[in-house]
Structure formats: C-alpha cells, structure tokens
Design a protein around this nucleic acid. Structure first.
Lengths: 120, 120
DNA sequence: ATAACACGCAACAAAAAGGTTGCAAAAGAG
DNA sequence: CTCTTTTGCAACCTTTTTGTTGCGTGTTAT
C-alpha cells in the first residue's frame, strides 16, 4: 500500500525546501503554529482530532501536518488505525541558529560599511 | 502578548502577514536571503544592481524587495533617481524571540506530558 | 532640449499553496 | 460477518506567489 517514502532527507520531494528554509516556511503560517501548539500540548494529536477543532476539513489538516512532517517538526507513529503525532524540537534549533547566523553576518557587514564610511 | 490579530491597518497592504510571521516567511526564500546578503554587504543596493546579478528581471527583484520591506527587513531611501536600500535588523530579533518562545513552550509541554505519563 | 537611465505601475501567464468533495482501504467494535 | 471509525489518495477549484513584458514618469547627463 504505502510506498517507501517518509524519508525526506535524500532526494527530496517536488516542492521541498531545504533545511532551515523549510522550517521557517512551515512556521510562517499561524495555522501550522497552532497545530504544533495543540500536538505539543497533547490535547489533539491526530489529524481527525485536529480537524475537529480547526476551521477546515481533515484533508486540509493532513496537508499542513505533512508540511510540518517534511520540515522535521512533527514525527508520526501509527498505533493501530490511529496516526498519532508528536513534535520534534531539533529543527527549531537549526532554524534559530540560521537566524542568529544571518543576523550576526548582516550586523558585521553593516559595521564594516559604517567603519569604511567613517574612515573616509 | 500572544494576541496578534488585527495588526497594522494603515501601513499593511492587502496580503500582509503580521509581525514575526512576515519575517519568517520573507526569510524562508533563499532568493530573498541572498538579496539581504548583497544589500547588507553593500555590493548591490538598488533594484537595478540586484537585477544585474540575479537570474530574474528587475520587476521580479522589485517584488522580493517589497516583500522584505513590508516585513521591515529593508528600508529604502530615495537619492535622486536611485532608490537605495539598507537592511534593518530589528525584525530579526523579534523573529528569533518568537522561535525561542515557541521552542520553550513546546519543550515545557513535552516535559509536562512526560511527567504526567511518569506519574501514572 | 534631447537622450539615457532608474524606477514604478498595470496586465498577463505559469506554478504553487490551500482548500473542498468523493471514494477506497485498513483497524476495531457490534 | 457487518458496520463504524480513521486514514490515505485522487481529482478539482480558488487564491496567492512568482515571474514575464510593455509602457509611463521622473531624474541625470550631453
């Protein structure tokens, strides 16, 4: 039935973003952040439960969950006929490090330009 | 603090995202990150200069720059017929704080669930 | 004044994202 | 076995992104 996907690390899927970009993009949608909130809280941890409290159908929730899963922010585990999800925090650290790195780089560049102008 | 709907009314165009979401979304595109890199470095600081080194037309660059400007990551200043941009680091701090806050919240929720399971 | 440059706006097309409905398959309950 | 629940997949539609071309406006140089 299901093919051997569920491995987003190799030759990625079609619309796949890489690394921290995927994480930033996944979390730039308030709906997906709310899904992460609810799964982390443990109140709604399946697609059907989430669709019960969110203003959209189950299939729409499935897509958001899949996006989060491809970003590595969610990990699913099948328990019988249910498909339960839990959050993974590792990509959060990567994305945060990415932002910090960029901020530091741009800050350095700005100071370098300012010093250059000051020298003239 | 957690309420962020009904954001900026007058300054935000039609499809504007609010606060940190706009920042995360703007930086989830490698092209826009590269634009930020080049403007911060001072090598290309106008739309025309950027279009000269990027594989797209000037109008496409204009759209990306506008996206970054709406997120507060770029500030433009007109000098004669040229429109020069410089980077602004403030939204970076907000976005980083948002990620940290979410990571801490989800981590707390996970520990609470783990403790709850441990108690049973 | 005229030509060249930098920029903005509008119309348009293709692709991706977000959402819906419908239907089929696997797991549990009666 | 039959029925219900949970899930996945496929087709389809709408909106948003992303990119193009064409044209008009303002600014600088000759």
């Amino acid at each position: 039935m299901t093919s051997e996907d569920s491995g987003e690390a190799g030759s990625g899927p079609v619309g796949a973003r890489a690394g921290s970009h995927a994480t930033l993009w996944a979390l730039s949608d308030p709906v997906r952040v709310e899904i992460m909130d609810r799964i982390a809280a443990g109140t709604e941890t399946t697609v059907t439960e989430l669709a019960g409290v969110l203003p959209m159908t189950r299939q729409a929730v499935t897509r958001h969950v899949r996006t989060l899963e491809e970003a590595g922010l969610l990990v699913g585990e099948r328990a019988g006929r249910q498909h339960r999800y839990r959050v993974a925090l590792a990509p959060l650290g990567e994305a945060g490090a990415f932002l910090d790195e960029r901020a530091a780089s741009w800050d350095r560049a700005l100071r370098r330009l300012a010093a250059h102008l000051d020298q003239q």
